[in-house]
Measured scan of single mutants.
Amino acid sequence: HMTFVALYDYVASGETDLSFKKGERLQIVNNTEGDWWLAHSLTTGRTGYIPSNYVAPSD
């Protein structure tokens, strides 16, 4: 899985979304859904959809 880092805080707007904090590391499970990607937080262990423009590839 690709690892990304959150650029901003995001508060989930629905049950399927994943809240995260700036700097949180996320594994992308599925990024074929356009602007919303299914991600797994390496910080909280939770999985949900995130806005793709809130994250950047982590080196």
Rank of each mutant, 00 (worst) to 15 (best):
Thr44Cys: 03
Thr44Ile: 02
Ala56Asn: 06
Asn53Ser: 15
Pro51Cys: 06
Asp17His: 14
Asp59Ile: 13
Ser52Asp: 02
Glu33His: 14
Asn30Asp: 15
Phe20Gln: 00
Thr44Met: 03
Tyr54Cys: 07
Ala39Cys: 06
Asn30His: 09
Phe4Gly: 03
Thr47Ser: 11
Asn31Ala: 14
Arg46Pro: 00
Gln27Leu: 15
Ala39Glu: 00
Thr47Leu: 08
Thr3Glu: 13
Thr47Gln: 09
Glu15Phe: 09
Val29Ser: 07
Gly23Gln: 02
Thr44Asn: 06
Ser13His: 13
Gly14Lys: 14
Pro57Cys: 07
Leu26Lys: 00
Tyr49His: 06
Trp36Gly: 02
Lys21Phe: 10
Ser19Tyr: 04
Asn31Ile: 13
Met2Val: 12
Leu18Met: 15
Val11Met: 10
Val29Pro: 05
Val5Phe: 08
Ser58Asn: 09
Asp9Arg: 02
Glu15Thr: 13
Tyr54Arg: 06
Ser52Asn: 06
Gly48Ser: 01
Val55Ile: 08
Trp36Phe: 08
Thr32Asn: 09
Leu7Gln: 05
Arg25Ile: 15
Gly48Cys: 01
Ser41Ala: 03
Leu26Trp: 02
Val11Ser: 10
Ala56Val: 14
Glu15Arg: 09
His1Thr: 12
Leu18Ile: 12
Ala56Trp: 09
Leu26Thr: 00
His1Asp: 12
Glu24Cys: 03
Tyr54Gln: 05
Ser58Leu: 15
Ser41Gly: 02
Val5Pro: 01
Val55Gly: 04
Trp36Asp: 02
Tyr8Phe: 12
Gly34Thr: 14
Ser19Trp: 03
Ala12Glu: 04
Asn30Ile: 09
Gln27Phe: 15
Pro57Phe: 09
Glu24Ile: 00
Ile50Tyr: 00
Leu38Trp: 11
Ile50Ala: 02
Thr32Phe: 10
Leu7Tyr: 03
Val29Glu: 07
Gly23Ala: 03
His40Leu: 15
Val55Gln: 02
Val5Trp: 06
Gln27Lys: 14
His1Phe: 14
Tyr10Glu: 00
Tyr8Gln: 09
Gln27Pro: 00
Gly45Asn: 09
Trp36Asn: 05
Arg25Asn: 08
Glu24Pro: 00
Asp35Tyr: 15
Lys21Asn: 09
Leu38Asn: 02
Leu18Glu: 02
Phe4Lys: 03
Lys21Pro: 01
Ser13Lys: 14
Gly45Ala: 05
Asp59Phe: 13
Tyr8Lys: 08
Asp35Met: 12
Val55Ala: 05
Val5Asn: 03
Asn31Gln: 14
Gly23Leu: 03
His40Met: 14
Glu33Phe: 13
Thr44Lys: 02
Leu7Trp: 03
Ile28Gln: 03
Gly34Leu: 11
Trp36Gln: 06
Asp35Phe: 15
Gly23His: 05
Asp59Ser: 13
Val55Asn: 03
Ala6Met: 06
Asn53Gly: 11
Ile28Ser: 04
Arg46Glu: 09
Gln27Arg: 15
Glu33Met: 14
Val55Lys: 02
Ala12Lys: 05
Phe4Met: 11
Thr3Asp: 08
Thr43Arg: 10
Lys22Trp: 04
Leu42Tyr: 08
Ala56Ser: 10
Ser19Ile: 05
Ser19Gly: 08
Tyr49Val: 06
His40Lys: 15
Thr47Ala: 07
Gly45Asp: 06
Tyr49Arg: 08
Glu24Lys: 00
Ala56Thr: 13
Val29Gln: 08
Leu42Trp: 07
Thr16Cys: 15
His1Ile: 12
Arg46Cys: 08
Ile28Trp: 02
Tyr10Ile: 02
Gly34His: 12
Gly34Trp: 09
Tyr8Glu: 08
Ser19Leu: 06
Thr32Tyr: 09
Ser52Gln: 07
Leu26Asn: 00
Leu7Phe: 03
Asp9Trp: 02
Leu42Pro: 08
Lys21Cys: 10
Leu18Gln: 03
Pro51Met: 05
Pro57Glu: 09
Thr32Asp: 13
Glu33Tyr: 12
Leu42Thr: 07
Ile50Asp: 01
Ser52Pro: 07
Thr32Cys: 12
Thr44Tyr: 03
Asn31Glu: 11
Phe4Asn: 01
Trp36Arg: 11
Leu38Lys: 05
Asp35Pro: 11
Thr32Arg: 09
Tyr54Lys: 05
Tyr10Gly: 01
Phe4Ala: 06
Tyr10Met: 03
Glu15Lys: 12
Gly34Val: 12
Tyr54Asn: 03
Val55Phe: 07
Tyr54Glu: 01
Leu7Asn: 04
Asp35Gly: 10
Ala6Pro: 01
Lys21Arg: 12
Arg25Tyr: 15
Tyr10Val: 02
Tyr10Pro: 00
Trp36Cys: 07
Tyr54Phe: 12
Thr43Ser: 13
Thr44Ala: 04
Glu33Cys: 14
Asn31Tyr: 14
Leu42Gln: 06
Val29Lys: 08
Val11His: 11
Gly48Leu: 02
Pro51Glu: 01
Gly45Thr: 03
Tyr8Ser: 07
Ile28His: 01
His40Cys: 13
Tyr49Thr: 05
Asn30Phe: 10
Tyr54Ala: 12
Ser41Phe: 01
Gly48Glu: 01
Gly14Leu: 09
Leu18Phe: 08
Val29Thr: 07
Ala39His: 00
Pro51Arg: 05
Leu7Ile: 10
Ser58Trp: 15
Trp36Ala: 04
Asn31Met: 15
Asn53Thr: 12
Ser41Cys: 04
Thr44Val: 02
Gln27His: 15
Leu38Ile: 07
Tyr54Asp: 01
Phe4Ser: 03
Asn53Lys: 13
Asp17Ser: 08
Asp17Ile: 08
Ala12Ile: 03
Gly45Cys: 08
Lys21Ala: 10
Phe20Pro: 00
Gly14Gln: 11
Gly14Glu: 08
Val11Ala: 09
Ala39Trp: 01
Tyr54Ser: 10
Asn53Phe: 09
Lys21Ser: 11
Asp9Gly: 04
Ser52Cys: 09
Leu42Ser: 05
Glu15Met: 10
Thr3Cys: 10
Gly23Phe: 04
Val5Leu: 07
Arg25Gln: 11
Ile50His: 00
Val29Arg: 07
Asp17Lys: 12
Asn53Leu: 10
Asn31Cys: 14
Val55Asp: 02
Ser19Pro: 06
Ser52Phe: 08
Thr16Ser: 13
Gly34Pro: 15
Gly48His: 02
Trp36Ser: 05
Asp35Trp: 11
Gly34Lys: 14
Glu24Val: 01
Asn53Glu: 10
Gly23Ile: 00
Thr47Gly: 05
Ser41Gln: 05
Gly14Arg: 15
Leu7Arg: 04
Pro57Lys: 09
Val11Asp: 10
Val5Gln: 05
Val5Asp: 04
Thr47Arg: 09
Thr3Ser: 08
Ser13Trp: 08
Glu24Ala: 02
His40Ala: 09
Trp37Ala: 03
Arg46Lys: 13
Trp36Tyr: 09
Leu26Asp: 00
Glu24Gly: 01
Val11Thr: 12
His1Trp: 12
Ser19Val: 04
Thr3Ile: 15
Ala6Ile: 02
Leu18Ser: 03
Thr3Phe: 14
Leu42Lys: 05
Lys21Leu: 11
Pro57Trp: 08
Thr43Val: 13
Ile28Lys: 06
Tyr10Lys: 02
Ala12Tyr: 02
Ser41His: 13
Pro57His: 09
Glu33Gly: 13
Ile50Glu: 00
Ala6Val: 10
Asp9Lys: 02
Asp59Met: 12
Leu26Arg: 00
Leu42Cys: 11
Ser52Gly: 07
Asn31Trp: 14
Ser41Thr: 02
Trp37His: 02
Leu7Cys: 08
Val11Gly: 05
Asn31Thr: 14
Ser58Gln: 13
Thr44Ser: 12
Ile50Cys: 02
Val5His: 05
His1Asn: 14
Leu18Gly: 02
Glu15Pro: 15
Thr44Gly: 04
Thr47Ile: 11
Ala56Lys: 11
Thr43Ala: 12
Asp59Ala: 13
Asn53Cys: 12
Asn53Trp: 14
Gly45Val: 01
Asp9Ala: 05
Val11Ile: 13
Ala39Ser: 03
Arg46Thr: 06
Thr43Leu: 12
Ile28Tyr: 02
Ser13Pro: 07
Lys22Gln: 08
Gln27Ala: 11
Tyr49Glu: 03
Gly34Met: 11
Thr44Asp: 04
Ser41Tyr: 00
Arg25Phe: 15
Gln27Val: 15
Glu33Leu: 14
Asp17Gln: 15
Tyr8His: 08
Trp36Pro: 06
Gly34Asn: 12
Leu38Ala: 03
Met2Phe: 10
Tyr54Val: 05
Leu42Asn: 05
Phe20His: 01
Glu33Asp: 14
Ser52Ile: 06
Thr3His: 14
Phe20Val: 07
Asp9Tyr: 03
Arg25Met: 15
His40Thr: 15
Glu24Tyr: 01
Asn31Leu: 12
Gly48Phe: 04
Leu26Phe: 15
Leu26Ala: 00
